[in-house]
Nucleic acid binder design. Sequence first.
DNA 1: GGCGATCGTGCTCATATGAGCAGACGAGCG
DNA 2: CGCTCGTCTGCTCATATGAGCACGATCGCC
Lengths: 314, 314
Amino acid sequence: MDEIDELLSIRAAELYYEENKTQDEIGQALRLTRWKVGRLLAQAKQRGFIRIEILHPRARRLPIERRLRDERGLADAIVVSTAGVTSPEELQARTAQAAADYLTALRPVPRTLGVSWGRTLFEISQHLRQGWATGVNVVQINGGVSLNRRPGTAAATAVGIAQKGGGSATLLPSPAILERLETKEAIESDRVVAGVIELARSADAYLFSAGAADHSSVHVESGYLSAPDVDLLVQKGAVGDVVGRYIDSDGNIVDPALDARTVGLTLDELRKAHLAIAVISGPGKLAVADAVVRSSLCSVLVTDEATALHLLGG
Amino acid sequence: MDEIDELLSIRAAELYYEENKTQDEIGQALRLTRWKVGRLLAQAKQRGFIRIEILHPRARRLPIERRLRDERGLADAIVVSTAGVTSPEELQARTAQAAADYLTALRPVPRTLGVSWGRTLFEISQHLRQGWATGVNVVQINGGVSLNRRPGTAAATAVGIAQKGGGSATLLPSPAILERLETKEAIESDRVVAGVIELARSADAYLFSAGAADHSSVHVESGYLSAPDVDLLVQKGAVGDVVGRYIDSDGNIVDPALDARTVGLTLDELRKAHLAIAVISGPGKLAVADAVVRSSLCSVLVTDEATALHLLGG
DNA sequence: GGCGATCGTGCTCATATGAGCAGACGAGCG
DNA sequence: CGCTCGTCTGCTCATATGAGCACGATCGCC
């Protein structure tokens, strides 16, 4: 297209989209036939001169979702729009809302839902509506109730999701990571704990997030790991954690010894699940998000536009 | 509209604009009639959820132009889009291009065009195409050839516009501002100078910019005024200058004594013109732009979107 | 509880738009 | 010089969309 046509297509686009004239009227104004106008508009679109944005906190990006499904082999993907986002909190809220919406619309409704805990999960629980489901029982899939500095967040998450969904919550009464392997094995052989883990294994669906491998991690905040511990993990290639288990960029366990002291479902159990919903968003989690998707830890991903584009761009 | 309809309208908009489904298909997907879908889309537009932007350096904002004409009484207005602008230089270039386009499309073609000089005018001269008109003679409307540090800019502007328009340029061989009133009167009574000014008065159209009242002014740069002079003018209420004459926010001359020493067309002569095209853009010129429009110094304004919205918002 | 006002709904019909096609035009080549 | 090929143009026709209308539900008011 030469410059004259390019300019005409811009003039046509202005009249069409900003002044909502018909293509015929534009044709008269610019001394073109209406078919020429239609073609100019089509070219303007195709060449990317026209950008249509949907400005709404609940807006999604369906074309990106499709690409994620097709190119990254996900069963489903939910991508929230970042248009008009001003703060990290807003991004987090939008993603949590989208996850809550996805859960609410999920069919068939899971009878048992396995959940992890953390900031993201807690926010999802808050965005769920009272009565989002009827009779959904919730079970924790990794430990972490007791040592939390902000007590009750882990429990509140599971209980909140269950209560709003008209079911009950089953907590996993165990720390996330234990100091000694023996203690971990002893705890796992406890009848109650073993029962909870068994229940978690039988869940119809899992909902979890992933943490970045840095000092802002809930594991550091909760006291399960120290800042130097995390530095060491990063040195070994860790990009983040999923249900308390640190993985590298290929989704492999970074520190098997540490992993053996971590209570809850294993990553392979997650991988075998029919429905594993990961909710991961924010610029700090690009690497983990990629690792999770690359290693098929989730079948469904809820994320933001920027993260999604990163997953597709690499 | 309740929340459920709001969400539906967003879903519909996603399917319509991002997935280009027909309203009928969307109706089937969301279990709505196609008429309902059409109404949801109309509401989404009307409530501002849908934003359509035209991303092109030559794109204009016609609705804003219309409002400027209607609400600020301009004969015509050209508003360039700021979408995708990354630097002040780009904004300047877009505005200059728009002014050049406007001149080129101007009918009837002016036989004599009065021009001021400065950074903006120079850039317009560069954006004009060879042969933008045939036989347009250009005359300077205010003094300022000699003292310029970057010599020749003022002359190059007028000469460039004339040469590309197949005409000749008439320069005003005088400083912009003289130190003594007597000198100014002597210069104006010179046969050549008086002849040029007489020619300028008879021009069919005027093209000029406006300067902000600060130290970045070309008058400071050219040595006609010192920084403290400008500070004093600001103290007296100056918001900027037009053809070398400093005005307050109502368009009145700030310092009559200084004005009497300024060579060129007077502001009232500009106001009486049939066609006075002001080209003013950039965040530093909001106040002058407002003063120029408020006091009818121009009949046509070429500006950027942000400045235009400022003119409408106050 | 009856009644009108108001709103939302799904229709009919007119209009706007896009797909596909036949002819015109011009560039490149034998 | 004439041919062919590809591109662009303006058409026909099918489809998508929007305006306007009649109906029924809902609500407030008496």
